[in-house]
Design a protein around this nucleic acid. Sequence first.
DNA 1: AAAAAGACATATGTACTACATACTTCAAAT
DNA 2: ATTTGAAGTATGTAGTACATATGTCTTTTT
Lengths: 243, 243
Amino acid sequence: MQPLAINNKTSLSEKLQPIDNQTQTDKIEISLWEYFKNGNFQPGDPIPKEVELAKALNVSRTSVREALSRFKTLGIIESRKNRGMVISSPDVLGNMERVLNPQLLDDETMREISELRLVVEMGLGDLLFKRKTDAALAKLEAIVEKCEKATTKAEHIKNDAEFHAMLYKISGNKTIQRFQKMLLPIFEYILKGMPEINSGETSNNASSHRVLLEILKNGTPEGFNVQMRSHLSSYLTKFHPRP
Amino acid sequence: MQPLAINNKTSLSEKLQPIDNQTQTDKIEISLWEYFKNGNFQPGDPIPKEVELAKALNVSRTSVREALSRFKTLGIIESRKNRGMVISSPDVLGNMERVLNPQLLDDETMREISELRLVVEMGLGDLLFKRKTDAALAKLEAIVEKCEKATTKAEHIKNDAEFHAMLYKISGNKTIQRFQKMLLPIFEYILKGMPEINSGETSNNASSHRVLLEILKNGTPEGFNVQMRSHLSSYLTKFHPRP
DNA sequence: AAAAAGACATATGTACTACATACTTCAAAT
DNA sequence: ATTTGAAGTATGTAGTACATATGTCTTTTT
């Protein structure tokens, strides 16, 4: 009945390794990771059949399937009916996209993501100058003109989105383009929670767009960044007003 | 035996919709998505038991488990032995992280990711000025001094990484910090494939770091961005030398 | 009466079996 | 030679049984 003598000066977690709390499937997942890594598998390479893996690992096909299912979810393997399973090239952003849901994320994370969005946009100048073409600039100009003609608030918002979307397109980087598009809903969700920002600031966006366009045509990356910073500063100063 | 009369002028794919090629599990996944969305589920909320879901959807528990397994992999739900399953707050970057593997990604994607990394870094100025503290600047200065004293190439590389890591830390945005850290291996992998870049340019990094530090202390975000751009320009010009 | 111990119930995890389905391959037929 | 058909194969789905961990309730102990 006497309790075990314990040295209270060292934390328990230092002395006690957590008992094998991993599920069978977790272990299999780890084993497969190692196997794929060491085997130097590349996209297109076939992997052994489920039953073979089950036998080799001495576990049931059920558990192997569950582990493989995780890889499938991440897009690391693909399976077709008879061909078996093959390593595939995952969609880097796809997994993130499925999870970017305001309902699920906490506010802090979403604010940080919104900031990231702004940071990307502010750092975009060089790519734009590197990749801009006359055709692209013409399209951008058309959008700017639409911006200037817009009257309702809804129009302003829509055109603003279009303007920025066009910028990403000009960047010539599809990953960045998709990334920004993904982040947009989060950004807007956070903005909705900040009433101060929705006030009349939409009107000067139009002129600001015109300036950005002109700089992009005849200016320098430095100038563009400066202008973009002031274009977005109203957002940035509102984020994270913490000490 | 006579072949069916076909209007050859319109392609088959326009007239024939591809047959429902979704697997049972796919359908269940979609149903569950809807169910979660409409049910306004939030992290911590419990979801029905596997058998109940199976009954309600009129499918086997096996398939329901596979669908749920996908949500678990994405971090949208968690399961504990008897408590059942609960909605959870997913790790936005975690899923991306598991997939950022040079072995699996194609070169184009990795180049785009490397560019994204640079873009983020170039857009970071404002956050740094917003969040910098004397303590943080002191730490940064210590790193700069280490940079200046470094002699071997390995030291240079290590110190350089440390300098930039400290910048992200100062940004006060843990998501961005993690994001950059994730992207680093891809960035370095791409760099390895560009021999021109590895040449003597490491030496002037040290002085460049000193300048960045001084600007961060007494300068402006604009000035910082300009300097950071020139600090990174050697990388940027090498990326994507396409028409 | 409070606390500890034990028994029971429950939901997920694992295993095994059986069959369905889609795709490949190869042989036969026209 | 092209098409048709049959057999084989690996994944997908279903169902059953049991293991295991956790929570709950009851009983016992002090």
